[in-house]
Design a protein around this nucleic acid. Structure first.
Lengths: 184, 184
DNA sequence: CCGAGGCATTAACCCATGTTAAGTGCAATG
DNA sequence: CATTGCACTTAACATGGGTTAATGCCTCGG
């Protein structure tokens, strides 16, 4: 989640874009260093393994942002794909412009640091879930914490985010008395 | 990994401490906001679940640092334990002093941001591994990337870090022709 | 209206990992 | 030397998730 102030300052740096559902914003292996801030719609960031399997790293919705840190910081190719899963509107900011402003503007830089901190904490939560919880526990937690996400996504994408197959998610759902409150 | 410059500046803020193997530096649920920088030895940060299972989040070795972000940033209790796994020497810096210096000193603050970035990238790698790789693949990768870590740790701790049981790790090792190069 | 493609469900089978328990070897300690 | 505790291994069994395939249900486009 990106705060109001920061968003306004960033807006000037980039341009507004639209993309239909299913559009790649960048691909695994690309060196595109753009920073994306979503205004409407949703995208998914996902890894694709050699044998063609897909694992979803994260979803990006309204007022959330994403870039490939590896590209921006280390200049190495992006390890993941970014593709829209709904028709979307977003800001696209070139990485070098963002970095330049961060260097110049102290206030901006501190806002950016706190953004980084948010990212680190979010990743820590995800690490915890993947390390300590079973697939079923992860699913229940997601239902509780992000019911709206479950609504907007296909079950396939939910499964890929949980790190399991759609078949397995279907089993978990049938096995479980629990349901996402909104879905009734 | 903490850079030379930053380390020197931090040293003045805290005090040097020693702790024998098996000493808790803080526990799950604590509100201790200390920041630790290791000079010698090693610690492990781990989650303990309700039913008594242990999952290791990370190891902290020479020139690496750790704190519970949740405590420092959100003031909420630490979700994990920190305990030494070797006799250790380290710097202990109170969180409030660190935050104060970050606010005052621009150069320090930017060094700290890049540290945050390192943390975020490290967590991203770990997320990738937990999400996309099997236990066996994770073990092989660890052997290749951190042979020294494997040497210094018990197999139990390696297993807890990989997210599997020691029994399962023993099986993987016996199943596999692959061995850590140094261990022969 | 019909057919194609995509998604969810279900079943059958396989394999990896968890669980429990027993056995072994080693190091520390009395 | 004997005892204790710990780490590691191995085995037997249970279970969760992967794989494949069949089925049914949509929606979309002809």
């Amino acid at each position: 989640m990106i705060e109001g102030g920061l968003l306004e300052r960033i807006s000037g740096l980039g341009s507004e874009r639209y993309a239909a559902k299913g559009t790649f914003l960048f691909r695994q292996g690309d060196l595109s260093d753009h920073f994306f801030i979503f205004c409407q719609g949703m995208a998914k960031a996902y890894y694709e393994t050699i044998d063609g399997k897909e694992f979803i790293k994260s979803f990006i919705r309204e007022n959330e942002c994403i870039a490939s840190m590896q590209v921006i910081v280390a200049g190495s190719p992006s390890p993941f794909n970014l593709i829209t899963v709904e028709n979307s509107r977003f800001l696209e900011v070139p990485g070098d412009r963002l970095l330049a402003v961060i260097k110049e503007d102290a206030e901006f830089s501190s806002a950016f640091s706190s953004l980084l901190l948010q990212v680190a904490m979010k990743k820590e939560r995800r690490e915890y879930e993947l390390l300590c919880l079973s697939a079923e526990q992860r699913y229940r937690l997601l239902c509780k914490r992000e019911p709206e996400l479950i609504q907007r996504l296909s079950q396939t994408d939910v499964a890929r985010y949980l790190g399991i197959t759609p078949v397995s998610l279907s089993r978990i759902r049938s096995r479980t008395p629990f349901r996402c409150p909104i879905s009734e």
